[in-house]
Design a protein around this nucleic acid. Sequence first.
DNA 1: TATGAATGAGATTTCATTCAT
DNA 2: TATGAATGAAATCTCATTCAT
Lengths: 215, 215, 215, 215
Amino acid sequence: MADTTTPRFERRKPDRPEQIADAALLEFAEHGYAGTRVADVAQRAGVSKGLMYVYFRTKEELFKAVVRKVLTPKLDQLTSTVRHSTLPMDQFLRGPFLTFMQELVRSRARVVLRLMIAEGPKHPDLTQWYMDNVLNRGLGALREMIQRGVRNGELRPGAIETYPQLLIAPALIGMVWMILFQRHEKLDTDHMLQEHVELMVQTLVIDGPRQQVLL
Amino acid sequence: MADTTTPRFERRKPDRPEQIADAALLEFAEHGYAGTRVADVAQRAGVSKGLMYVYFRTKEELFKAVVRKVLTPKLDQLTSTVRHSTLPMDQFLRGPFLTFMQELVRSRARVVLRLMIAEGPKHPDLTQWYMDNVLNRGLGALREMIQRGVRNGELRPGAIETYPQLLIAPALIGMVWMILFQRHEKLDTDHMLQEHVELMVQTLVIDGPRQQVLL
Amino acid sequence: MADTTTPRFERRKPDRPEQIADAALLEFAEHGYAGTRVADVAQRAGVSKGLMYVYFRTKEELFKAVVRKVLTPKLDQLTSTVRHSTLPMDQFLRGPFLTFMQELVRSRARVVLRLMIAEGPKHPDLTQWYMDNVLNRGLGALREMIQRGVRNGELRPGAIETYPQLLIAPALIGMVWMILFQRHEKLDTDHMLQEHVELMVQTLVIDGPRQQVLL
Amino acid sequence: MADTTTPRFERRKPDRPEQIADAALLEFAEHGYAGTRVADVAQRAGVSKGLMYVYFRTKEELFKAVVRKVLTPKLDQLTSTVRHSTLPMDQFLRGPFLTFMQELVRSRARVVLRLMIAEGPKHPDLTQWYMDNVLNRGLGALREMIQRGVRNGELRPGAIETYPQLLIAPALIGMVWMILFQRHEKLDTDHMLQEHVELMVQTLVIDGPRQQVLL
DNA sequence: TATGAATGAGATTTCATTCAT
DNA sequence: TATGAATGAAATCTCATTCAT
């Protein structure tokens, strides 16, 4: 009632980058990097083509911004989960860790993973950022968790300390499956990850009185 | 009769399609699908642009042909390995199966995986072909192997029968690592896969007299 | 009455148009007309883009204003120099006239000349203004001077009355040289102009008692 | 009659660059560098936009090619004229040299001069080329001619040896006039140049028996 | 008066595909 | 069969100008 005429311009600078990045993620997810038209992102974001270039100097910058924006919180979540847990190792793996993987497979990070795999080799600086801020932070957090378990006598020492990748490998499978095949053939990734965690617990966790202090 | 597709008595440079597909794989590997120029493939193959279109009607057809050409022998190798092995399960896993994964990570299949992840969603028919001829054949072979082990009393029944993906998940990690990070930070994927197999053997293989007949 | 355009009692930063025009000249000089961004002029002038459009309705208007602003005083200077001189012709040519040309070559007029040559054909009204207010006033002043000399018996009558352009042609050469080549190869334009004047004096000035009244 | 259907493609590679450069010159002449659209050049040349980029990688390359193409023959003409003349100096100046300047003012070089003045500062390599291949060759040829005259006792030594620019300065005036004002106000550049040459001959050429050997 | 976020028309450039030879 | 000159649709990016505040 107050605004009877729709203004041709809307001024709301603070929201714009967010708004554009969200739209961009969706377009990139659907069409990949090269397949995405800046014009379509603009339309999806409800802004003009020109405005895109006010906030992101090139399509490539936009892409990188999207990747960073999506992955950063995911990694924060992982590190935080690992750092603040005081649960016994088996409960931790079956609980928060499993949940993290299950959510990861479903989250927007999945499509960003696809984008990284597809475009990473063309963007060395983005790949470097990914290594520093996603991969190494992620693996670092996992390794920290495992080593704590080993020190506490909860976990068998061994390969998993050297290659924490093995712990999340099935999440990667899950994501790739979702990307490529989910439309064709369902896979219960939640269950698969649960079974994976069971196997890991069986293999890694030392039986016996585990109620010792964990901290 | 053995050679039905190649017209035997026409004069033309033999294996032109082969030649082109090989060049195309290298270009796709380096630049991705969209980043690859048909002209560059032609140059690399040593033929004219026009001739490409004699053998492959579009760039997309060429892409699909490349994917099929690379993956088919890989799958044949896996199925054959699994089918013809008469080794006890632990020896099989530590031997031919580990070797297969290690080679897989290094092979041209790696770059095709990248291409599939990047482009799959845009080519449903290719994805369908991949599911039928790569994924399901691959998982089928693995499942077959596992079930034989279970029947023989060599393997514990359980999750791995349902989700043979868990067995090759680290190979996927290895491939993705090679694609994205190998230039930045080395990972000894061979060793990682070996450790993975050890974990799997510990978890899955039933101890005790294993020298019973396998077949 | 003296000051009709500037409203005397309104509060605003004085000389905004001046300020903008000065900034514009520098930008136009560096990047040419098309290569100059209105936003950059605004920034250089320390005002907002929007404000520019309060004082100059379009980029083109701004351009024309700059041209006029720079050239007008130069022409005033020339006419005034010529009109007020009471020197014998040889002294005048070697003195004030030479100085004028030497300064001209160095002045901001040089870059405006470049702009006129580049953009003139696209702006007929500007070109017309230039003809009326620069070219014809300039040539007029020179011709007046020459004719006075002829009447006084100081100068040989002839071509130079018809084509006073010949008298300042080397200044044009000097300006073009400064515009294009000075960064690559120095030319002592001062000396060149001095030599030109010497040649002119030799050719044009009638020897003999020249101390007669001049005026 | 032979070709009843107009083919959509015409294959005539050898002509193309020429054809495009000619069209480009006309467009650049009319609209300047920035004001010229590649599409319009293409249309004028009767080829597709895409083909432009087959022969000239960028608009800038096209521009440079045009400049070089137009100026090179002009300079060849000047050097050749100067080198091969066996005329006495006054006849040479009043004859071939005057003719050269008169033609120069009318030729396509005129518009290229405009382009150079306008765009030179933005293209240092083109400017360097211009200096090496136009300016210095041109001035060199003039200086050579003058020094020959001085050695022969035909010309007074002096400023003109140091600054041969003074000899062609009026041609520059003529060209600039043609560019900017000819549509508004005629100037008989031919006559102006003729008068200029007369002045130069009067000033520079030594009277007396000039029938001495010239060579 | 003053700002600068927002617009949108238009420019250059790329490249898969066609087709005259 | 073989070539590569030629096409044209489309994509990215720029920037003068407008207008809500």
